[in-house]
């Protein structure tokens, strides 16, 4: 085991997978030195700032036997490529009757907290979850980042890796040997018995801090990290809620039609799990606004450990 950052874990995953498979190559508006030094500029290309074109180029290369890795930078820039993502990447395998595979990994940072205002502080994964045909992951630790990215690269479908910009410098233990974290498998980040907290990305860490705070009061919080948004590990979420009878969902995105709404539905639509609920589910999300710039405004918009504690108290009091 060695201790590396969340960002480094992503780079390490790319280096190992590009060593492992000669059909992989990397597209982004700048070519990372660590990759260029090892793989050269044929396989590590700096593109013009033309996300629509290089997203489509990845689709065409994938359909021609390659396994491209695309870094959009911030998720914000992916919106420039929306036709290629929505109309092409998500549908191309299905629309052509499954005759070709399109193994593509798209990486993008999400989240706020960097005082960069509305266009650069977004977590719009639910927009993509609403499409059929894209898989997506949202790692919260260096270990998960590396393992999920490796799975994404090896998967034969388009996979979006949403990566929290608040976590880039966070360090964690990562084993040296090759490993993957399978898509569609949630991780119990902390076991508990009184309430299930399903938390995403940065809010996994805030949720663990909230759980520590509540433990002092004798409240036992189970923290579930879905890790993969599509396919979602519905069984793990339901099993935890069936055990605790209470559900709080913490997401840095806004609540409306969000991943948090989907997670709540996974629980409430299931008769067996619904029957075990002792309180209505509670969502702890960002306010439904474009993210503002001024620190006091931005901090007011995003939830943190205190909001999670308050949300948990609410379902415990019901």
């Amino acid at each position: 085991m060695r201790k590396i950052s969340y960002a480094q874990a992503g780079t390490d995953a790319l280096i190992e997978e590009m060593q492992r498979d000669a059909t992989t190559f990397h597209l982004a508006t700048s070519a990372p030195d660590e990759l260029v030094n090892e793989f050269g500029t044929d396989r590590v290309r700096a593109t013009p700032i033309a996300e629509g074109a290089f997203t489509g180029i990845a689709i065409g290369a994938a359909g021609s036997g390659y396994r491209p890795i695309v870094n959009w930078g911030m998720i914000t820039f992916s919106f420039v490529a929306m036709d290629q993502i929505v109309n092409q990447a998500a549908k191309i395998h299905y629309m052509f009757g499954g005759q070709a595979k399109f193994p593509i990994t798209f990486r993008a940072s999400v989240g706020g907290g960097r005082r960069v205002a509305a266009q650069h502080s977004q977590s719009p994964y639910s927009m993509f979850m609403n499409l059929a045909g894209l898989k997506m992951v949202l790692p919260s630790t260096p270990y998960d980042m590396k393992g999920l990215l490796k799975s994404a690269i090896r998967d034969d479908n388009p996979v979006i890796s949403f990566e929290s910009n608040r976590l880039m410098g966070v360090e964690g233990e990562v084993q040296e040997e090759d490993y993957t974290v399978p898509l569609g498998v949630a991780d119990t980040k902390r076991e508990g018995s009184d309430v299930t907290l399903v938390a995403l990305a940065w809010l996994v860490h805030e949720g663990l801090a909230a759980a520590e705070m509540l433990e002092k009061e004798g409240v036992s919080v189970e923290v579930i990290d879905p890790r993969t948004l599509v396919p979602m590990d519905e069984a793990a979420i339901r099993a935890s809620v069936q055990k605790t009878g209470r559900l709080v969902i913490a997401d840095e995105a806004g609540p409306t039609a969000g991943a948090s709404a989907e997670i709540a539905t996974v629980v409430t639509e299931d008769r067996e799990t619904f029957a075990k609920l002792k309180a209505p589910p509670k969502r702890v999300c960002a306010l439904h606004v474009p993210i503002p710039y001024s620190p006091g405004l931005e901090d007011h918009v995003f939830p943190d450990r205190d909001n999670i504690v308050a949300g948990i108290r609410e379902v415990l009091d019901t």
């Binding site: 629509g52 074109a53 290089f54 997203t55 489509g56 180029i57 990845a58 689709i59 065409g60 290369a61 994938a62 359909g63 021609s64 036997g65 390659y66 491209p68 036709d83 290629q84 109309n87 092409q88």
Partner: peptide, 13 residues
């Protein structure tokens, strides 16, 4: 919509 995609086929080639 197809123009970038086939350009990717050109890159593959």
């Amino acid at each position: 919509g197809g123009i970038p995609i086939v350009t990717g086929a050109g890159l593959a080639a």
